[in-house]
Design a protein around this nucleic acid. Structure first.
Length: 829
RNA sequence: GCCGGGAUGGCGGAAUGGUAGACGCAGUGGACUCAAAAUCCACCGGGAGCAAUCUCAUGGGAGUUCGAGUCUCCCUCCCGGCACCA
């Protein structure tokens, strides 16, 4: 009858759904496991990257379920976002309709793959039942002082018509559309994620040992902590104090100038107090810097531009005047936007001073050298001994930093300070298809939060998206107009919506309590299910979603809603799916549609291929020949059951214990069965090497083909092998395993059958190949019984004819014996 | 520049410091067939040899070790992240 994968797969998908095999409830008496995948954006159809991600997760979920764990394995959709608006424009539809259509279609595709989700828990972030809790959480953040509005130069993406968070600017360009990002001054909503910078950083080392090093490093870099001191320069003429941050307070005696960012607030004050002519020049300089793109301005080795102001600040230690300059390489959004210029020990300052003829004073001497400010060619940024630094002369750099800051703090010259590269999270988006920010503007009361009992602020669904430079919400006076919750007077709704990363920062909590309407989730559920034990997704979220989600978890924990501080215990970042040397993408036209492949080969084949072709972290080269190979393997499994079905059924499932087996061939075969269980379990559970787990199943299949039973014992062993093979195969190719399991008359479903347990006495070998080496080179291989002691092994090895011949007249210096493994004879001619 | 990860057959990739190349793809030969496909069986890193076998080989160079793809140091190249961050 052959392997009719289409019929089999639809049959079992229906069966699993009807039997509700994969629906789970929190049960404190059962050991739990939370297996999570990054939920997809409902872009229209699944792509191979999704299939890879979810095939890994499903395999794990099925495996762990069989091992007796109560496995939460949910799926949902990250459904707000720009593409829906673009699609609405293109196809003359509504974002709401387009999105929901895609959600339903992609759900059907996921079901066709046979993934074992608990579908009752599906979450859609565009559903008011979900986003009302976005609004609620946002209000809690507001209450805790984590939300603020600020007019600031923000990253602006013109094609997207909206601002971007820092995390969403990649190489100076928009993370979604790739357009270079501009600057715009806007009043926007921010979240103080920086309040959590230290914990976000600390936990990388203490709590994220289950994450790849790569991601941990990326987050560490992104948060970017640096320790140092804040010091100030008094500017008496302007009655102003310039604050600056430095990590090198030990170089304070080497200051020869002060540099400000052209956007620094002091610039305006100085302009007012300057002769008109000079002020004009300075304004021109500021304008010139403003015209430089962010990429230009932050390019390494970019040209340093400076402008000398007619003012001076007082050196914090000596009180001497220090010239104040404006410089294009000083960034307003790091530190204080002002620096102490130490050209001798900072390469950027050095280049600046050489260009503008500012003095250079070395205050650290490297070992065995003597630096002279007049002749130095590069700044010395390493460690050495302090000089020209008064009482600190002669101190080694690391000590100098500490002792000088201690002294500075005592004298009131500086304060220890820690700076982070991480910026607050800008969450407003000037887009329609997102969660409305629950605030109103009242002419009397100002910016007023919408009371919790009035949530959700519903996003109107019946809108027409038009190609205009602003959100369609602004064209809906009936939606915008509201009353002030505070005074009851007329007010206007906030028309900005939230960054969609807000939605994806807590969806995994919501999965724990589907449909809960008393809160974002029920703590009874999250107390049981959280944290996520295994999270699987793409590396591209290393500094976006994975930082935001960690922050949310800390915040919700501070509210007392979560018991955990970190959401994801183990993280697996899967590689991309590549074809013809490039990532599959529509623009390159190298996309392979999963649906077509599933029709041609079946879901089991696709799953198997995608897990077998490469280790999870590596990129995976799509190869239709490889797919055929996977299909061929499943065909072999099928035939090896179908062709022997009568024999396999006739002899029953009673196992023959190892102790009763005498024939070495049978004993070997029994061992193969049980070492497969051990190996596959190890590869999945400990190594997360799904490719080698599959390789071991292929080996067992090959052994089954080579095995020709001749008696009752042999047939029973064959049945044992087939049952183990199907059981271990079922997480990878669940449909075919289920069908064959049933054909054999096994009770129940293989999906819910316990994972096989290896028989201990079927693992140890009767004999082993002992390698005889001479000076580390393999010279003989001996098949010997297990457990011989060192002396015996040495004796046997030395007695071997080829070995004796090899040694000849050479002197044996020593012999290393590793029992059951090798004998290494060290000789000297 | 700094940080992280890599480099193994024609290809994807295996190898607790102990037989390098599991498993698969591609390839070669055979069986079955009128023939092909499918399937089954065998071979499949380089060099030498009729063969047994020998020899070289895990990016390059040193080192530790009885023994190194694996550990240490240096170098080359590739991938990823951060970067005029004070």
């Amino acid at each position: 009858m052959g392997y009719d994968f289409q019929a089999i797969e639809t049959k079992w998908q229906k069966e699993w759904a009807e039997r509700r095999c994969f629906e789970v409830e929190a049960d404190p008496n059962k050991p739990r496991f939370y297996c999570l995948e990054m939920f997809p954006y409902p872009s229209g159809a699944l792509h191979m990257g999704h299939v890879r991600n979810y095939s890994m997760g499903d395999m794990l979920a099925r495996f762990l379920r069989k091992r007796g764990l109560n496995v939460l394995y949910p799926m949902g959709f990250d459904a707000f976002g720009m593409p829906a608006e673009n699609a609405a424009l293109k196809y003359k539809t509504k974002p709401h309709d387009w999105t929901w259509q895609n959600i339903e279609y992609m759900t059907s595709q996921l079901k066709r793959m046979g993934y074992s989700y608990d579908w009752r828990r599906r979450v859609e972030s565009c559903n008011p039942d979900y986003y009302r809790w976005n609004q609620w959480i946002f209000l809690q953040m507001y209450r805790k002082g984590l939300v603020y509005r600020k007019t600031a130069p923000v990253n602006w993406c013109e094609p997207c018509g909206t601002v971007l968070a820092n995390e969403q600017v990649v190489d100076g360009a928009c993370w979604r559309c790739g357009t270079p990002v501009g600057r715009k001054n806007l009043e926007q909503w921010f979240i103080r994620i920086t309040n959590y910078a230290q914990e976000l950083l600390d936990n990388i080392d203490t709590s994220l040992s289950g994450w790849p090093d790569r991601v941990r490093t990326m987050q560490r870099n992104w948060i970017g902590r640096s320790e140092g001191a804040r010091l100030s320069f008094r500017v008496p003429e302007l009655d102003y104090t310039i604050e600056a941050f430095t990590t090198r307070f030990d170089t304070v005696y080497g200051i020869t100038f002060i540099a400000l960012a052209p956007e620094h607030e002091l610039v305006r004050i100085m302009l007012d107090k300057m002769p008109a002519e000079k002020a004009k020049e300075m304004e021109a300089f500021v304008a010139r810097c403003a015209a430089q793109s962010s990429i230009e301005r932050s390019a390494v080795g970019g040209e340093k531009l400076g402008f000398e102001t007619p003012f001076t600040g007082r050196h914090p230690v000596s009180g001497e005047p220090v010239p104040i300059w404006l410089a294009n390489y000083i960034l307003m959004d790091y530190g204080t936007g002002a620096i102490m210029g130490v050209p001798a020990h900072d390469q950027r300052d050095f280049e600046f001073c050489r260009k503008y003829g500012i003095g250079i004073i070395p205050v650290i001497q490297p070992e065995g050298e003597h630096l002279d400010g007049a002749t130095m060619e590069v700044a010395f940024e390493g460690d050495g001994l302090s000089c020209n630094s008064g009482r600190f002369d002669g101190l080694p750099t690391q000590r100098a930093i500490q002792e000088m800051i201690d002294w500075g703090e005592r004298e009131g010259l500086c304060q220890r300070e820690v700076n982070f590269r991480l910026r607050d999270w800008l969450i407003s988006r000037q887009r329609y298809w997102g969660t409305p920010i629950p605030f109103v503007y009242c002419p009397t009361c100002g910016v007023v939060p919408v009371p919790e009992d009035q949530l959700p602020v519903l996003l109107p669904e019946d809108v027409e998206v038009r190609e205009v430079g602003h959100s369609p919400l602004l064209d809906m006076p009936e939606w915008l107009a509201t009353t002030c919750p505070s005074c009851g007077g007329p007010a206007r709704r906030e028309a900005d919506t939230m960054d969609t990363f807000f939605c994806s920062s807590w969806y995994f909590d919501r999965y724990c309590s589907p449909g809960h309407d008393k809160g974002a989730f029920d703590t009874k559920d999250t107390d049981y299910w959280m944290p996520v034990d295994q999270y699987i997704g793409g590396i591209e979220h290393a500094c976006l979603h994975l930082i935001y989600a960690r922050f949310f978890t800390m915040f919700l924990s501070d509210l007392g809603m979560l018991k955990v501080r970190e959401p994801f215990t183990n993280l697996l970042t899967q590689g991309m799916v590549i074809k013809d040397g490039a990532k599959m993408s529509k623009s390159l036209g190298n996309v392979v549609d999963p649906t077509e492949i599933v029709e041609k080969y079946g879901a089991d084949t696709v799953r198997l291929f995608i897990l077998f072709a490469a280790p999870p972290q590596n990129d995976l080269d799509w190869s239709e020949q490889g797919v055929e190979g996977a299909h061929r393997f499943l065909g072999r499994v099928w035939r090896c059951v179908e062709d022997n079905l009568n024999d396999l059924k006739r002899h029953g499932t009673d196992r023959v214990p190892m102790a009763e087996l005498k024939d070495p061939a049978l004993r070997d075969f029994k061992r193969k069965i049980h070492s497969t269980i051990v190996g596959v379990t190890h590869d999945i559970d400990e190594e997360k090497q799904f490719n080698t787990a599959i390789a071991k199943l292929m080996e067992l299949t090959n052994a089954l083909y080579a095995f020709k039973p001749s008696d009752e014992t042999g047939y029973r062993l064959q049945r044992e092998a087939v049952d183990v093979l199907l059981n271990c195969l079922s997480p990878f190719g669940p449909h075919i395993a289920e069908e064959l399991w049933q054909m054999l008359g096994n009770p129940g479903l293989v999906s819910t059958a316990p994972w096989p347990v290896p028989e201990e006495d079927a693992l140890g070998a009767d004999s082993v190949t002992v390698v005889v080496q001479i000076n580390g080179k393999v010279r003989a291989k001996l098949e010997l019984p297990v457990g011989l002691d060192e002396a015996k092994l040495r004796e046997i090895a030395l007695a071997e004819a080829t070995v004796r011949e090899r040694i000849g007249s050479a002197t044996i210096l020593r012999t290393i014996v590793v029992p059951d493994r090798l004998v290494n004879i060290v000789v000297k001619a």
